[in-house]
C-alpha cells in the first residue's frame, strides 16, 4: 500500500477511536447528571433542580454532533465487519446515552412538581438506594465502552436484577403509605422509580451493544 492510503486508513482508525472516546465522555457527563439527580433527591436540595436541567443541554448538543459524525463516517468510509458493527452500535449507544440524560432531568422535574420532598425515612432510603444502584448499572455500560469488554454485556441482565428488586420494593412502600403521602406524591414517586429503573436498563443495553461490537452477537442470541 502506498503511504497515502495508509495515512487515510490511519486517519479513519483514529476517527473511530475518537468516536469511542467521545462516547465514554458523553456517558460520563450523563452519569454525573444522573448521580446529581439522585443527590438532589436524597439530600433534599430543590435549589439544584435547575442545575441538573441545565447540565442536560451540553449532553444533547454533544449527542447531536456525535451522531452527525457517525453518519459522515458511514457515508464516506462505507465500513464493513467490525467497523460497521461499531458504528451502527454507536448510533444505538448514543441514543441510550441521550435518553438516560433526559431521564435524569425527568427525575428532577418530578421533584419540582412536589411541595418539598417526602420526609419518610424508609421511602427516602429506598429511593437513594435505587438511584445508586441505577447509577452503578449505568456505570457498567460506560465501563463496557471504555474497555470494549464483551463480558460486561453478557452478565448485565443478571446484574440488573438488583435494580428491579429495589424498584419493586419502592413501589411496595409507596403503595403501603399511599394515604399519608397523598396521590400526587405517590404518583411522582412511582415515576421517579420508573425513571431510575429505565436508566439502569439503558446501561444494560449499552453493555450489550458493546458485546455485539466485539462478538457480532447480542447476549442470549444464537
Amino acid at each position: 500500500m502506498e503511504p497515502h492510503d495508509a495515512d487515510l486508513r490511519h486517519h479513519y482508525d483514529s476517527e473511530l477511536e475518537e468516536i469511542r472516546a467521545s462516547l465514554v465522555d458523553l456517558g460520563t457527563m450523563a452519569l454525573s447528571n444522573i448521580r446529581h439527580a439522585g443527590i438532589v433527591f436524597s439530600e433534599n436540595r430543590p435549589e439544584e433542580i435547575e442545575t441538573v436541567r441545565n447540565a442536560d443541554i451540553p449532553i444533547n448538543a454533544k449527542y447531536t454532533e456525535l451522531e452527525a459524525r457517525v453518519f459522515e463516517i458511514l457515508a464516506l468510509q462505507q465500513p464493513v465487519a467490525s467497523d460497521l458493527r461499531f458504528l451502527v452500535a454507536s448510533t444505538r449507544i448514543l441514543y441510550e446515552l441521550e435518553r438516560s440524560g433526559d431521564l435524569a432531568v425527568n427525575v428532577v422535574k418530578a421533584l419540582a412538581r412536589l411541595d418539598g420532598i417526602p420526609t419518610d425515612a424508609s421511602i427516602h432510603s429506598a429511593v437513594s438506594q435505587l438511584a445508586e444502584a441505577s447509577a452503578a448499572m449505568f456505570t457498567r455500560g460506560i465501563e463496557a465502552i471504555a474497555t470494549l469488554d464483551p463480558e460486561i454485556g453478557m452478565g448485565a441482565e443478571l446484574e440488573d436484577e438488583a435494580t428491579d428488586h429495589l424498584t419493586a420494593s419502592l413501589y411496595k412502600l409507596v403503595t403501603l403509605n399511599q394515604d399519608e403521602l397523598g396521590l400526587e406524591t405517590a404518583v411522582a414517586l412511582f415515576r421517579i422509580g420508573r425513571y431510575f429503573e429505565r436508566i439502569a436498563d439503558h446501561g444494560v443495553n449499552i453493555a450489550e451493544n458493546v458485546t455485539f461490537v466485539v462478538t457480532a452477537q447480542f447476549p442470549g442470541e444464537g
Binding site: 464493513v80 465487519a81 467490525s82 467497523d83 460497521l84 458493527r85 457480532a216
Partner: peptide, 14 residues
C-alpha cells in the same frame, strides 16, 4: 461482511 470468521478477512475488507 458483517462478521468475518478470519482476522485476515476482517483486515482486508476493512
Amino acid at each position: 461482511f458483517t462478521n468475518p470468521r478470519e482476522s485476515q478477512t476482517e483486515d482486508y475488507i476493512t
